[in-house]
Simulated scan of single mutants.
Amino acid sequence: MNSNEKITKTDAREKISLLWVVVMFNMAFADIVGFVHPGSLEDIIAGNVGFELTQGLLLLFSILIEIPIAMIFLSRILNDTANRRLNIFAAILTAIFVIGGGSATLSYVFFASIEVLCMGLIAWYAWQLPKRASAHDLVQSENVVPSAR
Rank of each mutant, 00 (worst) to 15 (best):
M1V: 14
M1W: 08
S3V: 14
E5H: 11
K6S: 10
T8P: 00
K9V: 15
D11E: 08
D11V: 12
E14M: 10
E14G: 02
E14A: 08
S17M: 08
L18Y: 13
V23P: 01
V23Q: 00
M24T: 05
F25E: 01
F25K: 00
N26W: 00
A28N: 04
F29W: 12
A30H: 02
A30K: 05
D31G: 12
V33Q: 07
V33S: 03
H37E: 13
H37P: 00
H37Q: 13
P38F: 04
G39F: 09
S40W: 09
E42T: 15
D43G: 05
I44R: 09
G47Q: 10
N48L: 05
G50R: 13
F51R: 10
E52T: 15
L53M: 15
T54M: 08
Q55Y: 11
Q55M: 08
G56D: 11
L57R: 15
L58M: 15
F61V: 13
S62Q: 06
S62N: 10
S62Y: 09
I63Q: 05
I63K: 07
I65D: 03
I67G: 02
I67E: 03
I69H: 03
A70I: 09
M71L: 06
I72K: 02
I72E: 01
R76L: 15
R76F: 03
I77G: 05
I77M: 14
I77K: 10
I77W: 13
L78I: 05
N79I: 09
N79R: 12
N79Q: 10
T81Q: 15
T81C: 01
R84A: 01
R85V: 15
L86W: 12
L86M: 14
N87M: 05
I88W: 07
I92H: 02
T94Q: 03
T94K: 03
T94I: 06
A95Q: 04
F97S: 03
V98K: 01
V98H: 04
I99N: 02
I99K: 06
G100D: 08
G100W: 08
G102Y: 07
A104C: 02
T105W: 12
Y108T: 04
Y108V: 07
F111L: 01
F111A: 01
A112D: 03
A112L: 08
S113W: 07
S113G: 15
I114V: 15
I114D: 01
V116G: 02
V116F: 06
L117S: 06
L117E: 00
C118T: 04
C118F: 07
M119G: 00
I122T: 07
A123K: 00
A123F: 01
A123V: 05
W124S: 02
W124C: 00
A126R: 02
A126T: 06
W127T: 08
W127H: 14
P130N: 09
P130E: 10
A135E: 15
A135W: 05
A135H: 10
A135F: 11
D137I: 06
D137Q: 15
L138R: 14
V139P: 00
V139A: 11
Q140N: 11
Q140D: 12
S141I: 07
N143E: 15
P146F: 12
S147V: 13
S147H: 06
S147E: 11
A148L: 12
A148V: 10
A148W: 09
A148R: 07
R149D: 08
